[in-house]
Design a protein around this nucleic acid. Structure first.
Length: 685
RNA sequence: GGCGAUGUAGCUCAGUCGGUUAGAGCAACGGCUUCAUAAGCCGUGUGUCGGUGGUUCGAGUCCACUCAUCGCUACCA
């Protein structure tokens, strides 16, 4: 009986943003697995697509003054270019905005209807009368109903952490138009997931389809109680597919996105004369999804539920990976660590990143860290210093002779490296690439030691030793080739180059098991340049300029170049409607000095500030700036506060004012200051 | 708060069923070498294995508690 063929997917990137190094962890991890399987002779297709629907796309297209279709076409082009630049070997890259996807959504929808899984319910949602659209949570801001913190998004409060519905917000404002949203009731359609509870319990807990941490997470979090109905419709206007039997309603983007996996496969089938059912409704295909841990829920509960109800094959395994940090911290545009794929490619070879990620990736969901110093060291030391150097230090010696006609005695080196192949293969199979890379580098170390002991450069000088010279080089080049086979899933270009050098292409994993003899050796050319650390720095610098030109907030940085401010910040939070001077004077802004900054131990985001308006006039203000400033940085500095804001009772005490700041929140909060000369108590006019 | 994880050498991490003096790579230091992309080889580690307590003849490995860090917390793409 033949092994099942493989259908592999990576998550569909959303068409609202560019691919960055964080995304690439997943596409590279998946690509390595796919290439490994193919090299082993396994039938394996790698399918992906752009995820194109939803409110965010609709709003963005509107802001850019063009159609959604135009926007997503541009974005798709750019995504495909980035992936190609990193040698991601998709068999097909489709789009969720395709006719195939619409037809599949219809069919799957009908199955859910037939299975009595669809129910209707009224949902109260905020509606923006000016923009004429319902507002997703992220497009509404207002005062938190729990702690009364102002300027909070519609789903949860960044200050007190409370979660609520946007309709509970006090004084809500649409971030699209600045209009006051009104509560509107609309009919929504839901999937009654609870009907599939026992199926999902079995599927997730079987131990065969998910990493154990994930199974535990689902069990503890969702499966212990009845599953909630899943709201999968959105009223018009919405960019997506209209629901055929519910005019005016559209499928929520998370309904049609995973179906895009099937639709994209279908497009591939049409191109290649294949039958879709052989891939999605057949025991002779194993489906493997690769995703990040942020979208676990959709892929391990909803998606299996939908597939099960609609009669499609379930994934054999959902492989979940962690996030990328850079130098130990979350990627941040401000620091230039959120590097776009295209920016990386301008400065560095994709092989570096593919190898570095491989050397860090294991089968678990730990986050992986891109340590920039280590990145440069590791790539240079392992790839250039150890692997490529083997060819570099021997190939030239036998350009005229070619490889020896018979494989010489090598003290068992080749045989032992060949037998390590099984362990390496197993590590790839189990997604333990870090282990695979360690095993491979052990072989490279042994090979380099052999070169050292055999001293081909000495043999070269002795005319009676030419046969031995050829033998030594034959051994070393065969070890090099073995390494290239083992590294081929990670470094496809190096494998090709090795094939050219030894005039025998690497086509199968088993090429590592028998040595090459008697072939000519091409003229040696450098296979991989050393990574220059300056280029890493240049990439980081460019990433800073590209994304946050307004980074020059600190006067200490000497800005030589005129800042190129992007429109991102304004687009993220459009201007509020016009207000009169009377409106403005209602707000009493005052200069104040922070005389005491205290930790609030139980609070995640708040610090307690005692501010002085001069004289004995002090007050207590709670500010959500814990992540952005240390207590020392706050102590003593002048800030601008809203002095006549109605005091709010917060969880940790009464807040008698508000400190003004710019920025989206979290670590990116920038307090307003005043030029020197201002004193506490002065009003801001 | 709940849940899931992590905490081993300066850095990044291995340590399979609990079993001899706890390992690797990188970095650092010393020596050798010069074929090679200033690459390579040899040598050098006094680590409270986060902490406390327990089980055991024996614990980095099992159990309890505790501290720290990270992530997730569904109508958000």
């Amino acid at each position: 009986m033949t092994q099942p063929k493989l259908l592999v997917t990576a998550a569909l990137p959303y068409a609202n943003g560019q691919i960055h190094l964080g995304h690439l962890v997943e596409y590279i991890q998946t690509d390595i697995w796919v290439r490994y399987q193919r090299l082993n002779g396994r039938r394996c297709i790698y399918i992906c697509a752009d995820d194109t629907h939803g409110t965010a796309i609709m709003i963005r297209a509107r802001q850019e003054g063009r159609s959604e279709v135009e926007l997503i076409a541009d974005m798709q082009k750019s995504h495909e270019r980035d992936f190609a630049g990193f040698d991601i070997s998709f068999d097909h890259y489709g789009s969720t905005n395709s006719e195939e996807n619409r037809l599949l959504c219809n069919a799957i929808w009908q199955s859910l209807r037939d299975a009595n899984l669809i129910v209707e319910d009224d949902v109260e949602q905020l509606f923006d009368p000016e923009a004429g659209t319902f507002l997703a949570d992220r497009f509404v801001k207002g005062t938190c109903p729990s702690c009364k913190a102002p300027d909070q998004y519609g789903d949860n409060c960044s200050k007190c952490g409370a979660t609520y519905s946007p309709t509970e917000l006090i004084d809500p404002v649409s971030t699209l138009s600045g209009a006051t949203p009104v509560v509107k009731t609309a009919k929504h359609l839901f999937v009654r997931l609870e009907n599939l509870h026992s199926f999902l319990e079995n599927w997730t807990q079987s131990g065969e389809h998910l990493q154990s941490e994930i199974a535990n997470y689902l069990k503890g979090h969702f499966l212990g109680k009845p599953l909630r109905d899943w709201d999968i419709s959105r009223p018009a206007p919405y960019f997506g597919f209209e629901i055929p039997d519910s005019p005016g309603n559209y499928w929520y983007v998370w309904f049609d996105a995973p179906i895009g996996y099937i639709a994209s496969t279908w497009q591939w089938c049409k191109k290649n004369n294949e039958n879709l059912d052989d891939w999605w409704k057949s025991d002779s295909t194993e489906i493997h999804h690769f995703i990040g841990k942020d979208i676990t829920y959709f892929h391990t509960l909803f998606w299996p539920g939908v597939l099960h109800s609609a009669g499609f094959s379930l994934p054999q395994f959902v492989h979940i990976h962690g996030f990328l940090t850079v130098d130990g911290e979350k990627m941040a545009k401000r620091k230039g660590t959120q590097v776009q794929a295209a920016t990386y490619l301008k400065h560095l070879d994709p092989a570096y990143l593919r190898y570095y990620y491989a050397s860090k990736l294991g089968p678990r969901l730990d986050d992986i860290d891109l340590n920039l110093t280590e990145f440069a060291n590791k790539v240079n030391s392992d790839l250039v210093g150890k692997v490529v150097n083997l060819a570099s230090r021997t190939a030239r010696f036998i350009e005229s002779m070619g490889l020896a006609p018979e494989y010489p005695h090598d003290g068992g080196l080749f045989a032992s490296a060949a037998s390590a192949g099984e362990k390496i293969a197993q590590a790839y199979e189990q997604l333990d690439y870090a282990r695979a890379m360690r095993l491979i580098m052990e072989i490279a170390d042994q090979a380099n030691a052999f070169v050292e002991n055999s001293a081909p450069w000495t043999l070269k000088k002795d005319p009676t030793q030419q046969v031995r010279l050829q033998e030594v080089c034959t051994i070393v080049l065969n070890l090099f080739r073995q390494l290239c086979v083992y590294l081929a899933p990670v470094l496809p270009r190096l494998a090709d180059q090795c094939g050219q050098l030894l005039q025998s292409p690497i086509q199968h994993w088993n090429d590592s098991q028998s040595p090459l003899v008697g072939t000519p050796v091409s003229k040696f050319e450098h296979l991989l340049q050393r990574l220059q650390p300056e280029k890493v720095q240049a990439m980081i610098e460019e990433s800073k300029v590209e994304t946050t030109p307004q980074a020059e907030t600190s006067p200490s940085t000497e800005a030589v170049v005129a800042p190129q401010d992007s429109g991102d910040a304004l687009a993220a939070e459009p201007l509020a409607p016009t207000c009169t001077i009377e409106d403005f004077t209602k707000v009493d802004l005052r200069v104040a000095r922070i005389i005491k900054a205290e930790e609030v131990p139980e609070a995640k985001k708040l610090v307690k500030l005692t501010v002085s308006l001069g004289g004995d006039n002090t007050r207590t203000v709670f500010a959500g700036i814990k992540a952005a400033y240390t207590l020392e940085q706050l102590q003593g500095r002048l800030v601008v506060i809203v002095a006549n804001l109605q005091p709010r009772q917060m969880k940790f005490g009464l807040s008698e004012g508000m400190v003004t700041a710019a920025g989206p929140g979290g670590t990116e909060v920038f307090l307003l200051g005043v030029d020197s000369g201002a004193v506490p108590g002065q009003r801001v006019h």
